[in-house]
Design a protein around this nucleic acid. Structure first.
Lengths: 212, 212
DNA sequence: CGAGGTTTTCGCCTTTGGGTCGAAAACGTG
DNA sequence: CACGTTTTCGACCCAAAGGCGAAAACCTCG
C-alpha cells in the first residue's frame, strides 16, 4: 500500500506510509500511529522490524534515518483506504519516492524466507481456508508454484494445520468439496531447528548394526 | 568485547562500544568509527545489522535510539584492546549498562541461526583449519555439541570446504595428523532455499512406477 | 621396536523430511 | 448416468543429515 505525495520533494511519486518518531513512543508504536492515518491498524495480522536505512543522502534536505517494518493483512480482508492511497502488486510498482523501492524488495524477500521456516502463513490466511486457497497464497508470496499435497503434509507434520470439520462448497464447474482447515498455533513460531546441524536426534539407533 | 563506563549514568557497568551518528556517515560507517577507538577494525571478518532498540526509557536522560550490529573476529586473532575493555564469554557476562544484555543475547541467537543456513563459519575460522578446530568453534557458537563427521559432510556437500593438501601436526599425546581445510567461498552465502517448500526438484522421476 | 593409547577419517547404516505421481473420492452438468 | 472437475489420499522416491564403529596414522613408553 502506497500513498501519492502531494508536495516536494518527490511530489506525485508513491511512498510508503511513515513519519517522525514521537518523544514518548518506541518505533513500533510510531509505525502504527502513522499507519492509522491510512488504514485500520487492527486489521494487521503481523508486524515486524525489517531494517534501518541510513544513507546520509537517502532523502534530500535534513538528515532522515528510517526504520522499515513489514506488516501483513489477511487475504480475506480488503481494508478501506483513503483517496490518495492504493494497493500495488510487488512486481508492478509505480515510480516510488526515495529508497522505498529497495525497502519493498527487502520486505518481499523477508516474507518469502519466513514463509519457509515459520508458520507466518497464518498472518496471510483467513481464519478458515482450503488447502487450494492456501496454496495460491503461498505461490503468490513465494513467486513459484508449490504443490498442494506437499504444502498440506509439511504443515501437518509440524502440527500447524487443524481440520475444522466443515467443507467449502465446490465452484461453478463442480468438483469435490474442499475440506476447511485453520492454523492451530497463532503466534509466530519458528521451526525448532532450521536446516542443518541440529543437536542430536535421528541416525542409527544405538546397538543395532554389526557389520560383517 | 565490553568497556567499563567511567561516568554516570551506569558508571562502572560494562557497555557495548558505540556512539552518536555523524552527519555525513551511514550507521555502518559510524559503528566502525566508534569501534576503531577500541580495536583495529580491519580485523573484523563480518559485520551485519542486528536490530533497532527504541524504547523511550532505554537510557536515562535525553532520548537515544540505538541500532545494534553484530561483528565477528576470526578465532586465531586476539586483538589488542585498551585498558578499560575486556572480552567476556556470552554465558558469563558482568553487570551490563542499559539494555546491552538483551542486545548481546539477540546477537548470539542471530549468530547461531546464521551458522546453520549460511557459510558464516568462514568469519569465525582462521584461513586454514582442521575439522576438529572448526567443530569446536561451531559447538561454542551454537551452544551444543556438533559431530565432526557431520559438520564436514554438510559443509562439503554445499561445496564450501576445500582441502589445502597440508596436514597439521598431531598434539603432544600423538594421534593421526589432521588434514587442513579452507572455506572456498569467503563472502557470505545463503543456502539456496532454506528449509521447506522448494520450487521443483527431487521426487520420483517421471514415468517410473506403474503400481499393481 | 612393538604394544597400547590417541586422534582423525572413512564407510555404512538409519531416520527424517520434502517431492512426484496416479488413482480414488465427491461433486456438478448435459 | 456418463463425463469433466476438483480435491484428497496413498504409494513410492530421493536427498540430506545424524550415528556408530572400524580403520588409518601418529606418539610414547616399556
Amino acid at each position: 500500500m502506497l500513498w501519492q505525495r502531494a508536495q516536494e520533494p518527490h511530489a506525485h511519486r508513491w511512498s510508503l506510509p511513515g513519519g517522525a518518531l514521537g518523544d514518548r513512543e518506541d518505533i513500533e508504536a510510531s509505525i502504527k500511529r502513522q499507519l492509522a492515518e491510512k488504514v485500520d491498524v487492527r486489521q494487521l495480522s503481523h508486524v515486524e522490524q525489517l531494517s534501518v536505512f541510513s544513507a546520509p543522502d537517502r532523502v534530500p534536505g535534513p538528515r532522515v534515518v528510517a526504520t522499515a517494518f513489514l506488516g501483513l493483512v489477511p487475504s480475506d480482508i480488503d481494508p478501506e483506504i483513503p483517496a490518495d492511497t492504493a494497493w500495488f502488486p510487488v512486481d508492478g510498482l509505480p515510480e516510488t519516492a526515495f529508497d522505498h523501492r529497495s525497502i519493498i524488495h527487502k520486505a518481499r524477500h523477508r516474507l518469502g524466507s519466513k514463509l519457509s521456516y515459520t508458520n507466518l502463513g497464518f498472518a496471510l490466511a483467513p481464519p478458515d481456508f482450503t488447502i487450494s486457497a492456501l496454496r495460491e497464497l503461498y505461490s503468490a508470496a513465494l513467486g513459484y508454484r508449490v504443490s498442494a499435497t506437499n504444502l498440506q503434509r509439511v504443515l501437518s507434520r509440524r502440527g500447524l494445520l487443524e481440520p475444522t470439520g466443515d467443507t467449502s462448497p465446490p465452484g461453478p464447474t463442480g468438483g469435490r468439496p474442499a475440506a476447511l482447515f485453520r492454523f492451530s498455533a497463532r503466534g509466530i513460531l519458528v521451526t525448532d531447528q532450521f536446516a542443518v546441524l541440529r543437536p542430536p536426534s535421528g541416525g542409527r539407533p544405538a546397538g543395532a548394526g554389526a557389520t560383517s
